[in-house]
Amino acid sequence: MELFDLLIKLALVVAVFTIALVIAMYSTYAERKVAAFLQDRLGPNRAGPYGILQPLADGGKMFMKEEIIPSKADTFLFILGPCIAMMTACMTGVVIPWGNTLIIDGKAYIMQVTDINVGILFAFAVVSIGVYGIMIGGWASNNKYSLLGAIRASSQMISYELAMGFSIIALIMTTGSLSLRDIVEQQSGFHWNFLYQPLGCLLFIICAFAETNRAPFDLPECETELVGGYHTEYSSMKLGFYLFAEYINMFISAAIISALFFGGYNFPFLDKIDAPHNVITLIGTAIFFAKIIFFIFFFMWVRWTLPRFRYDQLMHLGWYVLLPISILNVLVTGAVTLFRNGQFHF
């Protein structure tokens, strides 16, 4: 039985890893398609029907490209950069609850690689390591543009992590748990957290855009000013890793947003369905992925609508607007929680 448990976990790890990679792969395709459709174009449609094989063609191209390591670059760090970016992007998926329990032979297995009780903290810790990948890559390139891009990336991510952290604190004050599974389970039915924490949800989504370096916060790689930002000197699959890591991050961010604020695998009228437990679990998982895909689409939608921030505007928004609002949100949430528990004394 022990072995079987282990195998289930292994299968889950492999499945999460594969799904993350496949979704990231097709996000590149979807990005181009969405961009095209929003701009009255058709997008890639040559490789396979509707261009469905485009990611494979892109990947093949990435592998074929010449591998260049600048002679003045720090070779070790230069290679380490994309490795860290990719590794941290893949690591966050383990704490996300992909579904409810599956009952096999009378024993319940959770559809989650690990349910650690500080799930959110783990996710944020790993995401913050991701900035090292960009920073090291930009530094090791020995190039002005790369360095500027890396500095922008790290300062941006650190600035927005504060507001993001505060919006999470407000959420945790209402849920009372750091475990992502607990948070999702509390939202059963339609008690989704964005109804209780609308401001926190908005702040979190805005910060998630900044954390994933997506437009309108894509200053680290703004090609109009910094050539390619931190990955100017990168080529071949190392560049591919950076780009890929961004899409995995986007997938993970979408998953965390939908788990924290939009009910995860819960959906309204869940209890109305008369079906075996496992079937409902699978439906829930499908719904979770639908939510994730919607948020990935949302990320792209925003990217192709809004222009990029100017750097000072970015910092102004982060420090003077989002941070005070998120602190205010924490205070108000705390006051309301105390008041509802009857512990509020004037």
């Binding site: 969405v34 459709f37 929003l38 701009q39 009255d40 174009r41 058709l42 939608w301 925003v302 192709w304 609508t305 809004l306």
Partner: peptide, 14 residues
């Protein structure tokens, strides 16, 4: 702005 872009999403492509 997002409503404008999404309306283009469903437009017939020339």
């Amino acid at each position: 702005g997002m409503m404008i872009t999404i309306s283009h999403f469903f437009k017939k492509k020339p």
